[in-house]
Amino acid sequence: MTIDLSKMRQKFREREYKLTPQRQMILQVFMDNRGKHLSAEDVHNIVRQQSNDIGLATVYRTLELLSELEILQKMDFGDGRSRYELNENSTPHHHHHLICITCGKVIEFEDDLLEDLENVIAKNSNFTIIDHQVKFYGHCQECREKREG
């Protein structure tokens, strides 16, 4: 889904929320950092450069709300911190992630090689699958080169 501010305001109105300046500023962080997987702390550090009066608790609440409204996608990469990114997918399947266990870098890949497996599982189990997530953990090229160098 492409981010459209008028559609966003409509989502807020439908759920009886307001798109406050703070929420709009936090949303802008994701629009300016497309493709990045930001934690609440990352977002807080970015918005504090623009406005000192936004606290970390406000960022956490806003991220949860934006996730609940399906504007952001919330992810867990196993490092104890939730990460968020814009939910711009028009298809039910999301991209997948390669996670470097050395530096924490997250690399996205779009290839959905699980379609056949998903169909077999759905058929054999009589289960309707609506989504899946794949995470591969390892070492990115830069960390591998540092270790080998």
Rank of each mutant, 00 (worst) to 15 (best):
C143A: 00
L63G: 04
I71E: 00
H93Y: 14
S51T: 08
K7I: 11
I3A: 05
H44K: 02
C143F: 01
D79Y: 05
M25A: 14
L38R: 02
V120P: 07
D32V: 11
S6W: 03
T58K: 05
M75W: 03
F127M: 11
S51E: 08
I101L: 09
E108R: 14
L5E: 07
F12N: 01
K135N: 13
Y17A: 09
V134C: 12
E68F: 06
N124F: 09
H44E: 03
L27E: 03
F109Y: 13
D79R: 02
N45F: 05
L27V: 14
C143I: 03
K123P: 08
V106G: 06
K11S: 12
G104H: 00
D4S: 10
R34V: 14
L69S: 01
H96C: 11
P21R: 04
T91A: 09
T91I: 08
H132T: 07
E85V: 15
D76L: 03
E142F: 03
I99Y: 06
Q28S: 12
L19S: 05
E145G: 04
M1W: 07
F109T: 09
K135V: 09
D76Q: 05
N87H: 04
D112A: 00
H44C: 07
T20R: 02
E118K: 11
F109D: 01
H132Q: 06
H37V: 10
I71Q: 02
S125H: 06
Q50C: 07
T2D: 12
E41W: 07
S67F: 02
Y137I: 13
L66V: 14
V29H: 00
L66E: 00
Q141D: 08
D112L: 12
C143Q: 01
K36I: 08
E148K: 01
R81Y: 13
D4N: 14
C140L: 00
S82Y: 09
F77H: 07
I121M: 04
S90W: 07
D116L: 12
N119P: 07
H96I: 03
H37E: 10
K123R: 07
V106T: 09
D111F: 06
L19E: 01
G104R: 00
E14K: 02
L86M: 01
M8C: 15
D116N: 10
E145A: 02
F127A: 12
I129C: 06
I46V: 10
R9G: 11
F127S: 05
H94D: 12
N119E: 14
R83Y: 07
D32M: 08
F136N: 05
H139S: 13
T62S: 15
Q24F: 15
L5I: 15
H97Y: 06
L114C: 10
Q133G: 12
H37P: 04
C103P: 08
K7G: 09
K135G: 10
V59S: 00
Q50F: 10
I54H: 02
H94S: 13
E108L: 11
D116F: 12
K18E: 13
I101Q: 04
Q133M: 13
M1S: 15
M25R: 12
I3L: 15
L117S: 13
P92I: 06
K11D: 10
G55F: 09
P92N: 02
